[in-house]
Design a protein around this nucleic acid. Structure first.
Length: 778
DNA sequence: TTAGGGCGGGATGAC
DNA sequence: CCCGCCCTAA
């Protein structure tokens, strides 16, 4: 261990680090060395005799957890750090629940439903209740339920709570409580927890089982929580329970950076911390080591427009630095082009690498214009967020097999793959299965296992039995093989990998590669030693649990690759970059049109802006466009109100024309980004009116329908039994006329013939069970 | 049973 | 523009 680790801290930082026992609140301004304090404090605790096994550290992202562990290891110079319990709230609780879930009636290998899974369950329930899902939008219902769970309100309470019921009445959606109740029962039946359950059920567990609470209270003698301003009531109560005996709770946060109220976070947690415990030690970290004076001054001035903050005075010793550049462009495309051009120019002029730049936006949908412009200039980039890897269809399909293998109660996964790849278990069969499972109060899987008893017959029964046998064969592998071997078997037996491999379209290729990447990630999981201290758990269950909780930002396997990064401001929390572009600073976009109706919402948008500004170390560009495409058509936007809240002194509004579009570099219009041709093209091409008024004549009727009128079936046309049809035969089709069978595919009970009709539109794929064909000769 | 086209309705953020 | 749903043809 480095002996001098305390010397590297300023006075306030040191004060925080050496406070070992009793509640501690660290108010850490942006860039004030918060992570350094947290990691040093952990090291200090350990140096003063605290066992690593007794320290719990909760972070906001898995990536932050990983970094923290590495930094502690560096200070300590040993391997003791691997025994620390560090992770996000969700991942830590998921692990604890994996050991305890049986007490609540869940399988320990419960499935974790992501947001999409949860909404899919909701949609099913809404349809079952014969409600209109346009009115009871799954998204809306999900948010209501999520909010309830985050304030520890179960379905029973929800349905009798006056305030909540009034809200639902006023929103004209009185049945949300009923849906919540069914949702809770359904997910329980499925052996599944959603993200909010990981907190809610953790709380229930600790409340219901004193011996469990006792166990963890004594295990986690020291608790540290990062980003405390973004915790919700459920997290708050859990921490209160866990910390009740020792009260060695250290929270770190910055009320000015609270940006997750939509997830139930309440700023009250940090504002009230001092009142929750006696003798709370409060330390304020006010020296910023990250940004230039210009940047920090602008940030301070902006956030001063909010009311009711913890008083603090963030300052810096850094140089004044460059002014903040404010840039206005005509369109979103030009905004993209401007940013790409500026990145290219800055790389030359100030010797930056790609990795020094980040583009921050309010919504994921804004990434497009930047992607295009960066690609055009051959600047490598990576987008964080948006559809995460594990949300892609092909990945979810594959993972569904793994999930159902681990937990046959998981109905969402079962429905996903029961007929993928096609095996002749169609909609009718699935619906029957659901009805039986509801009637007999058993799982769908149990119905399938006893399909014969429920009257399934013939080909359907065979298909079901085959499916059940296959899943059982995967389950049999679980005891003797690791997650990777099982996954490879799944890929082979189901034919998924082969099927994707044979799809030679661009998307098919990408899907194949994604599945390969999934397999690689499973392999990596099984081969790298577990850092989390506990038992080495390389099981499939452990793997599945962690991937659902992975953020896109956590997939930083090529962390040091030299690329420009694109992400939302939310995703940028905790990060810093030499050069920051904050884009789309327009009314209705930033601040979001959804968040301008109350002071609270607007203040959160402003804090978000504050977070964006304070990511920058040296240079900051703020851009906005006069108009941009939304829903496919051009809309005008006013500049963001936040732009008026900045001190003129540090702002350069003349940069790139100060409101008009002009090239800033080298005078000429050489790069062409201010040229509006691009937009004009787009309008011309994409306006529907242009297409309908096109001078070209109406397209000729489709060949299919013209063929239908030309062929007159032979007198007395009677279709033959398709069972006897084979490649090489001549056949007659009612509409397409005479043709030759050239190939045959599909399952025996659902064969698809490829037939060439010389006069009937060429090659066609015909499903023999439905099309009427007459055999001419063999 | 299922694939593909036409059509209407929809965008905040994310463990 | 993009996704999901419904309808129709095979």
């Amino acid at each position: 261990m480095k002996a001098n680790y305390l010397d590297e801290l300023n006075e306030q930082q040191r004060e925080a680090v050496i406070h070992i026992n009793g509640p501690l609140m660290i108010v850490a301004g942006a860039g004030s060395g918060k992570t350094k304090v947290l990691t040093t404090r952990i090291a200090h605790l350990m140096r003063n005799g605290v066992d690593a096994f007794n320290i719990l550290s909760l972070t906001f992202t898995n990536k932050a957890a990983r970094e923290m562990k590495e930094r502690v290891e560096k200070i300590l110079g040993g391997s003791e750090a691997r025994n620390l319990y560090i992770g996000t709230f969700h991942s830590v609780f998921a692990r604890l629940l994996r050991a305890e879930a049986h007490r609540l009636g869940y399988p320990n290998d419960f499935t974790i439903y992501d947001t999409d899974d949860a909404k899919s369950v909701l949609k099913t329930i809404i349809n079952e209740l014969n409600l209109d899902d346009k009115h009871y939008k799954p998204n809306f219902v999900y948010n209501r339920i999520s909010a309830a769970k985050n304030s520890l309100m179960g379905p029973e309470e929800y349905q009798v709570d006056n305030l909540v019921q009034q809200e639902d009445m006023r929103a004209n959606r009185p049945l949300i409580g009923k849906i919540y109740d069914m949702y809770a029962k359904r997910t329980f039946k499925n052996g599944a927890m959603d993200f909010d359950d990981l907190l809610f059920k953790m709380y229930v567990l600790l409340k219901t089982f004193p011996e469990v609470l006792h166990k963890y209270q004594h295990k986690f003698k020291y608790i540290m929580i990062d980003e405390y301003q973004d915790t919700n009531p459920a997290q708050y109560e859990i921490i209160k329970l866990l910390g009740a005996v020792n009260e060695n709770i250290c929270v770190v946060g910055d009320d000015a950076q609270s940006i997750y109220s939509f997830r139930g976070a309440t700023i009250e947690n940090i504002l009230q911390f001092e009142k929750d415990y006696d003798d709370v030690k409060v330390v304020k970290l006010e020296q910023n080591y990250r940004s230039t004076k210009s940047i920090l001054n602008v940030a301070n001035e902006v956030i001063a427009h909010n009311k009711g903050q913890i008083e603090k005075n963030l300052w810096t010793d850094n140089t004044e630095g460059d002014t903040i550049k404010l840039v206005r462009t005509q369109t979103d495309n030009e905004e993209g082009k401007f940013v790409a051009d500026t990145i290219a120019e800055q790389k030359l002029r100030n010797h930056y690498d790609n990795r020094d730049f980040v583009i921050l936006y309010r919504t994921n949908a804004q990434s497009r214009s930047f992607e295009e412009s960066l690609r055009r200039k051959a600047i490598p980039y990576r987008i964080y967020g948006g559809l995460s890897f594990y949300q892609r269809k092909e990945i979810k399909d594959f993972v569904a097999y793994l999930r159902i293998t681990m937990n046959t109660r998981d109905e969402e996964s079962l429905k996903r793959i029961i007929n993928y790849p096609v095996r002749g278990i169609g909609k009718t069969t699935i619906e029957k299965t659901i009805v039986f499972s509801n009637d007999h109060n058993i799982t769908m899987w149990e119905v399938l296992e006893r399909a014969g008893e429920f009257g399934f017959k013939g080909g359907t029964l065979e298909a079901i039995d085959g499916f059940v046998t296959m899943i059982r064969s995967f389950q049999a592998l679980l005891t003797k093989h690791n997650a990777y071997d099982v996954a490879v078997m799944v890929g082979k037996s189901t034919n998924i990998v082969k099927e994707l491999f044979n799809d030679k379209t661009t998307e098919g290729l990408a899907r194949y590669e994604n599945v390969q990447e999934l397999l690689n990630s499973i392999k990596e999981f099984t081969e790298t030693p577990d850092e989390e201290g506990e038992l080495l758990d390389k099981s499939m269950g452990s793997y599945l649990q962690q991937i659902t909780l992975l953020t896109d930002a956590d997939q930083g396997n090529n962390e040091d690759s030299d690329v420009v990064k694109l992400m939302t401001i939310h995703a940028a929390k905790g990060l810093e970059f030499p050069v920051v572009f904050t884009v789309g600073l327009e009314e209705t976009l930033f601040p979001s049109g959804m968040s301008i109706n109350t002071r609270e919402e607007l203040e959160e948008e402003r804090r978000l802006f504050y977070v964006a500004i304070t990511r920058a170390k040296a240079r900051l560009w703020l851009t906005h466009a006069n108009s941009r495409y939304r829903f496919g058509n051009l809309v005008q936007n006013e500049p963001s109100r936040f732009l008026e809240e900045m001190p003129e002194k540090f702002i350069d509004r003349s940069y790139a024309g100060g409101g008009s579009v002009r090239n800033a570099f080298g005078g000429g219009n050489t790069s062409g980004w201010s040229n509006s041709n691009n937009m004009f093209d787009r309008v011309q091409k994409k306006t529907p009116a242009q297409q309908t008024q096109s001078a070209t004549p109406r397209p000729a009727p489709k060949p299919v329908s013209s063929a239908a009128t030309t062929h007159v079936p032979t007198v007395g046309f009677t279709p033959d039994d398709p069972a006897g049809m084979e490649p090489g035969m001549q056949v007659e089709h009612q509409k397409f006329g005479f043709g030759t069978i050239t190939a045959m595919e599909g399952a025996p009970n659902n064969r698809i013939a490829t037939i060439v009709f010389p006069k009937g539109g060429g090659e066609k794929k015909i499903m023999l069970n439905y099309a009427k064909l007459r055999i001419i000769n063999k």
